[in-house]
Structure formats: C-alpha cells, structure tokens
C-alpha cells in the first residue's frame, strides 16, 4: 500500500490556476524527486501537501486512508490539523531557523513543546527532556553538526543552516520528509554538503519528496522522478525512464535546457 497518494489536487491563486489536477503516489522508504521549471507548481504542491496552502479540490491519502479532502468544506480544527501536520516534515528553501535559539534549541523546541502535552510530562520531566536532548544531539550528529550545538544560526554558513533545518524537521520523526528546493538559496560550493546529507538519509530509507533543480542529484538519489509543467504531471517514472529516456517532448526540452546551464 502506498504511504502517500495524492489525487487530482488543484489550487488557484485568484485567477491563476497553479495546480490543475496533480496525482502521484509513493511507497514507504522511497525517494521521489519533483523537477520542472519555475512556475510549474512544484512548490505549491509541497505547500498543499503540508497544509501551508489549502488545496481547492482533490484528496490526499496516507497509508490508504483519506487524509485530506479538498471538497470537504468543513473546517479542520487546529488540533486535528496539527496532528496531521506531524506526519510530515518540511525543509524550506530559506531555512527559516529561529534566530534567537542556538542550534540544539532550534532542534529541541518543537519536540519539547509537544512533550509538554503528554500526560506523564510532569512526573517524568527530567527523563523526557534528557531523551529529547539525546535525540537532538544524535540527529545533529547525523547531519554532521555535533560541533555547532551552541552556535546561533547567524554564526553558520548557509549549508550549515540548511542542515540544522533538516535536523529540526527530523527531530519530530515525520513519516515523510519534504524538501522545497533545499539547495536553491545556497552558494554553489555549499550545495554538495546538503546533497550528501540527503543521500545519507536516502540510504537510511527515510521517505522523502524533494523538489529540486539538481537533475544529476535527483537522478542519483531518487526511486522515482516526476516532471511537472503548467500545474500538471507531464511524465513520471524511474530516473532511467524520465531522465535518460524521456518520452515527452516537454521533458526533453526541459532537460536539454538544464544541461546547457
């Protein structure tokens, strides 16, 4: 059964139709990359999947269960929305770290706030907090930042900031981790360290959806590639199918343009 299935998602901003019925599905442990030129709707798709935008219509299924229904006009309660949100993690293009907290606190903040809602929090406060800290340290070690725990975001390079934001998302143990152009805000020489971290996560079978412009990287890391243009999925398949042997004229045209860069 697919861990995630998106069916006919549509979204308009005013008169502009950004998503015109997007569907795809993925299995647990898979890495799916979404490629396509700017304005093709990739980012909006991620934002709809993470409830930062409300899709106008279409459905999202998680583990085969209806998770979000655009036709359902009944308002989702904030508490329910949060519960749903916690299934997913999102890494932003511009990091959006919390500037007043140091690295470890950036990673620990959300888990701590969540733990405070547990019934046994007051009795086991110390152990729970220690566990959260240990977990945060482990994750920061995984992204190679164990020497930066007490630094503030303003003291880090772009690549380090993005690794903190990946750690921050991982700390909540999301079922699926989404990346919105994780290297686009970085200097070219810094993209490598982020791609390395994502490759490592892929080898650990973290389920990921990556919106990216790094075609070579997507080809290497993904189980499935989705090419989007004008708010629809033009072509999808394995990297061999989509990147080596694209069937659609628009895919070929896009890949050709990307190669010229």
């Amino acid at each position: 059964m697919s861990i995630l299935e998106i069916k006919n998602l549509t979204k308009s901003f005013g008169k502009t139709e950004v998503l015109k019925g997007v569907s795809f599905s993925m299995e647990e442990g898979e890495v799916v990359s979404i490629i396509g030129s700017s304005g093709s709707g990739k980012t909006t798709l991620l934002r709809c999947a993470n409830f930062l935008e409300k899709a106008d219509s279409g459905q999202i299924f998680l583990d085969g269960n209806l998770f979000y229904d655009g036709q359902d006009k009944k308002k989702i309660s904030p508490a329910e929305l949060r519960q749903k949100q916690l299934n997913f993690g999102l890494v932003f293009q511009d990091f959006h770290l919390f500037p007043q907290y140091n690295v470890i606190d950036n990673v620990m903040l959300a888990p701590l706030l969540l733990a405070k809602e547990q019934e046994d929090y007051k009795q086991n406060k110390k152990e729970i907090e220690q566990q959260i800290r240990k977990n945060a340290e482990e994750i920061l070690d995984r992204v190679g930042l164990s020497d930066k725990l007490n630094n503030y975001p303003c003291e880090l390079s772009g690549g380090q900031k993005q690794r903190v934001s990946i750690a921050r998302a991982l700390a909540l143990k999301p079922r699926i981790l989404f990346f919105d152009e994780p290297t686009s805000a970085l200097d070219p020489e810094l993209t490598g360290e982020i791609l390395k971290v994502i490759r490592k996560l892929a080898s650990e079978h973290v389920t990921m959806v990556i919106v990216t412009h790094e075609i070579n990287f997507a080809q290497g890391v993904s189980d499935k590639i989705i090419f989007m243009a004008d708010g629809v999925v033009i072509e999808e398949g394995t990297p061999e199918e989509v990147i080596q042997n694209p069937k659609n004229e628009r895919t070929r045209h896009f890949l050709h343009k990307m190669n010229e860069k």
Binding site: N50, F51, L52, P78, R82, Q85, L86, F88, G89, L90, F92, D94, H96, L97, F98, L109, A110, L113, L114, S165, R168, A169, L172
Partner: peptide, 12 residues
C-alpha cells in the same frame, strides 16, 4: 516563514 516553520513543526 517563521510562522510557517512553526506550523509545519506542529506548534499551535
């Protein structure tokens, strides 16, 4: 982005 980061991290 600060609010959005909070939202996707499940904060109220």
């Amino acid at each position: 982005g600060q609010y959005e980061a909070c939202q996707v991290l499940g904060m109220t």
